[in-house]
Structures are given as C-alpha cells and as structure tokens.
Amino acid sequence: MQTLPKERRYETLSYLPPLSDAQITKQIQYILNQGYIPAVEFNESSEPEQHYWTLWKLPLFGARSTQEVLSEVQACRSEYGNCYIRVVGFDNVKQCQILSFIVHKPNQNSYGGRY
C-alpha cells in the first residue's frame, strides 16, 4: 500500500483521496441526517493557525436536501473561486462545530468534481 504524496492537509477527510461529487453529497446527507446545521465557509488561506473562516451566508437552518447546500457551495465558488471553501456541520445542542471538510481548493476546479 502506498501513502499519498506529502502535502499540506486541511480538514477532516483530507488524508483521503479527493472526494467525488457523490461522496460530497453523502457527507452533506450525513450532516442533514444527524440533525446538524450545514453552513458554507470560505477563506483565502487554510493555514492551521487560521481558525476563523468567513461564513458565506447564515447557516442553512432550514436545509432539508443536499441540493440546497450544494447550490450554496456553487454560489460561493462562483463568487470566491480563488479561496478554499468548506462545508461545516454545527450541532445546535452542543453548540459547536462537529465536522468540516474542504469542497473547493483554489487553482483547481474543485475538491471532488463540480462542487
């Protein structure tokens, strides 16, 4: 078994090969199934000391489908294609971010495919 080439790792799932569109959709569906609140964030840098990302819009409190979240990812990507973009899941009971993963890196079409 071969390891991935040495490169900077960004978020949850970053040690895996890039996610496909179907895998991104499944991760977003997991967020929704768990009752977490999805949000889209962006930042020019993904340096570890950069803890604060800019929220694209308010968290998607009423999101019921993956397509709603993916539409916001696409809109953010259209506006800030030169930034890292990630999807996060917030737990409103624990009042904290539970997970996050990169869906777009600058200088690439996206992390997976079109999203």
Rank of each mutant, 00 (worst) to 15 (best):
Q2C: 13
T3G: 13
T3R: 13
P5N: 09
P5C: 06
K6W: 10
L13K: 03
L13M: 08
S14A: 02
Y15L: 15
P17D: 10
S20G: 11
D21F: 00
K26M: 13
Q29L: 11
Y30H: 15
G35Q: 06
G35W: 05
P38V: 04
A39I: 02
F42K: 01
E47V: 09
P48M: 08
P48R: 10
E49R: 14
H51N: 05
H51T: 10
W53I: 04
L55T: 04
L60F: 11
R64E: 15
T66A: 14
T66P: 02
E68H: 13
E72H: 10
E72N: 06
V73K: 01
A75F: 05
R77K: 13
R77L: 07
E79N: 12
I85Y: 02
I85T: 03
R86N: 05
V87S: 01
V87K: 00
V87F: 01
G89V: 07
F90H: 03
V93M: 12
V93Y: 10
K94V: 14
K94R: 15
Q97V: 06
Q97H: 09
L99S: 04
F101H: 00
I102R: 00
V103P: 00
H104S: 05
H104K: 06
K105C: 07
P106Q: 02
Q108H: 08
Q108D: 01
S110A: 12
Y111V: 06
Y111T: 01
G112P: 01
G113R: 04
R114E: 14
Y115F: 15
